[in-house]
């Protein structure tokens, strides 16, 4: 489980990748889910406050569904690493990389952490689009319904 730390030291010397990438084909979904939709008499709230939140949910839906899909040729940069909160997002992404690789060295390998998350998000985003954006009705309600399909929400139903 532990390996030589030289690789880790080399990694430290290089500036890590900073921008989060998604497949270009999914960019319209990210935009739609962060944009209010006009109803007859009022504007509803967008289901997501930020693209970062969509990315994080897509990542963990992708992981739980075991859908890790490498990114294609055409990519879109959507936000910077700094948008991840150090208290919740970063530890979660590190835990994901740990669970995926089972090597503790991955904790300081930002490039690898990002690549793993991006590939799971690439697998999970389709489910969010289908269940939240494409489904009729209020999109926040659709989002809540999606969450309650998964553990530990399921236990509360």
């Amino acid at each position: 489980m532990l390996s030589n730390t030289n690789g880790d030291r080399n990694q430290q010397a290089r500036r890590p990748r900073d921008r989060i990438r998604i497949d270009k084909i999914h960019h319209p979904t990210y935009i739609a889910l962060t944009k209010p939709r006009e109803n007859e008499n009022h504007q509803d709230l967008s289901p997501f406050e930020s693209m970062k939140n969509i990315f994080m949910l897509a990542t963990f839906i992708g992981y739980n569904e075991k859908k890790r899909v490498p990114l294609g040729k055409d990519k879109e940069l959507i936000f910077a690493w700094a948008r991840f909160s150090p208290e919740e997002d970063v530890p979660l992404l590190r835990a994901l990389a740990l669970a995926e690789t089972e090597h503790v060295e991955v904790l300081t390998d930002q490039d690898r952490i990002l690549t793993i998350a991006e590939e799971y998000a690439n697998g999970g985003i389709t489910e969010i689009r289908k269940q939240v954006e494409d489904m009729p009705g209020d999109r926040i309600t659709n989002l809540v319904d999606l969450l309650f399909n998964w553990y530990p929400y399921k236990t509360l139903v």
Partner: peptide, 19 residues
Amino acid sequence: RSLANQGFIPLGKPVLDKG
């Protein structure tokens, strides 16, 4: 919406445990 936006954290329970 705010709670649903944080909804990914509980979904990460398996990786948290494994980590």
